[in-house]
């Protein structure tokens, strides 16, 4: 627990650094929200007036500190574009991305586990080689391109799936699943490739360990060894390294959401970058980073539990 607490404390500077980096970067992009809101026919005086109304005329450090002050009171602020609370925008979009991420992980597990075990059992045989090669192809296919191909085949050519029209899972479960299937598969195949490679490597490490050899020496069959002993032990490193994939997954989901018109977290972030909605960018970036940080923390804690040497 003390370890977890220490890690949590060290996360605070990470998040502050991050928010400063994000704040500085987005203010360096040309253009500002007042211009975007008023559009191409706005006069400079109108733009200045709206900047004042939005508080964009204040010195940057002051703007940053007032935002930070809001955060410390648990307030993410409001969108500069339409005044919706940023927290509400995030809560609206997060379930979409969460569903996409969870679906992706389920697809990845469903593919990677059987194949990963197969590859490990038949290590260095053709089954292993083929599986490994296929998984390398899997990680080499850009999810957003796969998404386009799925659109061409499954919605344009044969009308199996709708290409958009997201509805929440709990209110329209069937509609939701039919809309989410293609994007989930598009991101899922890549993650399956990543997971498969990790699982195979981890299984092989475990299979080389003494207790497995002992088990085998006792005459327990190969498959039984795999399922009862090896898999369980191989999972821990897979879960922990798998956790680290979350940040990468989030990045990849951004364009997939755009291709499939999904109103998710990635779309929100990209849209707010394009409309210079500073508060929304900062809020979403912070939440995205927090998610990654928390996952990393869980990973580290798991490591700490598994391997006491890691607890410095």
């Amino acid at each position: 627990m003390a370890y977890a607490a220490k890690r949590l404390v060290t996360m605070i500077p990470v998040l502050i650094f991050l928010s400063i980096i994000v704040f500085s970067l987005i203010h360096l992009i040309p253009g500002n929200p007042a211009q975007v809101i008023l559009g191409q026919d706005a006069s400079p005086s109108s733009i200045r007036a709206l900047e004042m109304q939005l508080g964009l005329n204040l010195p940057l450090p002051e703007q940053y500190l007032s935002w930070l002050g809001g955060i410390l009171h648990g307030n993410l602020g409001r969108s500069l574009l339409d005044n919706q609370p940023v927290s509400q925008l995030i809560l609206q979009s997060l379930p979409v991305t969460a569903e996409l991420a969870v679906g992706t992980i389920i697809v990845a597990i469903a593919i990677a586990f059987p194949l990963g075990i197969l590859a490990a059992v038949y290590r260095d045989r053709w089954a292993d080689a083929v599986t490994l090669f296929v998984s390398t192809i899997g990680i080499s296919v850009p999810p957003f391109w796969l998404g386009m191909i799925f659109l061409i085949e499954f919605t344009v050519r044969v009308h199996w799936f709708p290409s958009s029209g997201y509805e929440p899972l709990w209110s329209h479960p069937l509609r939701n699943l039919s809309v989410m299937t293609l994007p989930i598969l598009a991101t899922g195949f890549r993650e399956a490739g990543v997971l498969l490679r990790m699982l195979r490597a981890s299984l092989l490490d475990v299979l080389d360990q003494d207790f497995i050899r002992t088990a085998r020496a006792k005459g327990i069959s190969g498959w039984k060894v795999i399922f009862h002993h090896a898999t369980k032990n191989a999972l821990i490193p897979v879960i922990t390294t798998g956790g680290l994939q979350i940040a990468g997954l989030l990045g990849g989901i951004v364009i997939t959401e755009t291709i499939f018109s999904l109103p998710g977290f990635g779309s929100l972030l990209v849209e707010s970058v394009f409309s210079r909605d500073y508060t929304t960018i900062q809020g979403t970036a912070l939440v995205a980073a927090l998610a990654v940080v928390v996952v990393n923390l869980l990973v580290d804690i798991t490591y700490g539990l598994v391997d006491p040497r890691m607890r410095k």
Partner: peptide, 18 residues
Amino acid sequence: YRIFTDPNVELTNLQSGA
């Protein structure tokens, strides 16, 4: 109103009746 970021996707949705 349903929002589409891509006009081709939008058209596909007209054809599918969405």
